[in-house]
Amino acid sequence: MVNVLYDKAITCPVCKNIFHTKKVRTSATRIEKRDTDFCTHYIGENPILYNVFVCPMCGYAALESGFEEINAAGKKMIQESISRRWTQRSFGEERTILEAIETYKLALLCSQILGHKKGTLANICLRIAWLYRYLSHEKEFEFLTHAVNCFEQAFANEPMPIGNLDDVSLTYLIGELHRMIGHYEEAVEWFGKAVSNPAIKTKKKIDTMAREQWRLAKDAYRKKSSHDQVG
């Protein structure tokens, strides 16, 4: 039987250490379902657990897609803020969900130190929320809240796409994250923006999801308003 995990050799851009980290073979991934906020559930190994690279020598951590994108000033900030306090340890073997959460939190800390864009922080926070969801842990909602706050700031101030999300997909996602954490009025507003965007006509699946979640958010908002009036 072919091992679904393989070793990838990485050179740390901060300290030049060469280390190995596990990745999931694309051919071995089996999707079970996707949630309304794009969280994917897998049968077998979950590639999301391995999307953060962590240098065991200096502690620099980042999403695979942006791991090498660090300049000289950034390297100095990581060395001063992370490496000096870092206890050398490796995340290069098979990861549990809790170990994956630790790697994402390290990536979040490094991104904050480096002053990365809100869209980057939002994507990391969203994935931490997903990992907590796999564990049915209440901290999921804390990180969904961080994610939606960062996504809103990114939507207002940063060029599209944000990560792999275009204007329509991000507008829908912000609405859905608000709905999931109980911000129904904000959810209705964002879903309204999504379905009124002419570009949504080219995205039938997002259009269908946005209208369905918009209906759920409106129903929940009405019930909440009625309850508040009675209370």
Score class of each variant (00 low, 15 high):
Glu64Ser: 09
Lys105Glu: 13
Gly92Asn: 06
Leu106His: 03
Ser111Asn: 07
Arg84Val: 12
Leu109Ala: 15
Leu131Ala: 05
Glu102Ser: 15
Ala72Gln: 07
Leu109Asn: 14
Ile70Gln: 00
Ile70Asp: 03
His116Pro: 09
Glu94Leu: 04
His137Phe: 09
Gln112Met: 04
Leu121Met: 11
Lys118Met: 07
Ala72His: 09
Gln112Thr: 06
Met57Gly: 13
Lys75Gln: 12
His137Arg: 07
Ala100Leu: 07
Arg85Cys: 13
Glu68Asp: 11
Ala62Val: 04
Leu63Thr: 00
Tyr104Val: 04
Asn71Val: 03
Ile97Gln: 14
Ser65Gly: 07
Ser136Leu: 11
Ala107Lys: 00
Gln112Leu: 08
Thr87Glu: 14
Gly92Tyr: 04
Cys125Asp: 02
Lys75Val: 05
Ser83Gly: 08
Met77Pro: 02
Cys125Tyr: 02
Leu98Lys: 15
Leu106Met: 14
Arg95Ile: 10
Ile97Gly: 12
Asn123Ile: 10
Glu102Val: 07
Arg127Ile: 11
Met77Trp: 00
Arg85Ile: 13
Arg84Ile: 11
Ser136Asp: 15
Gln79Ile: 08
Cys58Met: 01
His137Ser: 09
Leu63Val: 05
Pro56Thr: 10
Pro56Trp: 02
Glu102Met: 10
Ala62Met: 01
Thr96His: 10
Lys118Trp: 13
Tyr132Ala: 00
Glu68Lys: 08
Gly59Asp: 01
Leu98His: 14
Ile70Arg: 01
Arg89Tyr: 14
Lys105Gln: 11
Arg84Ala: 14
Gly115Gln: 04
Ser111Phe: 00
Gln88Thr: 12
Ile70Asn: 02
Phe67Gln: 08
Gln112Gly: 03
Phe67Ala: 10
Arg89Asp: 15
Thr87Ile: 12
Thr120Ala: 07
Gly115Asn: 05
Glu69Cys: 09
Ala100Met: 06
Leu106Tyr: 02
Gly115His: 01
Gly74Met: 01
Ile97His: 13
Ala72Leu: 08
Thr87Val: 12
Gly66Gln: 10
Thr87Asp: 14
Cys58Asn: 02
Ile97Asn: 15
Ile128Thr: 04
Tyr60Glu: 03
Trp86His: 11
Thr120His: 15
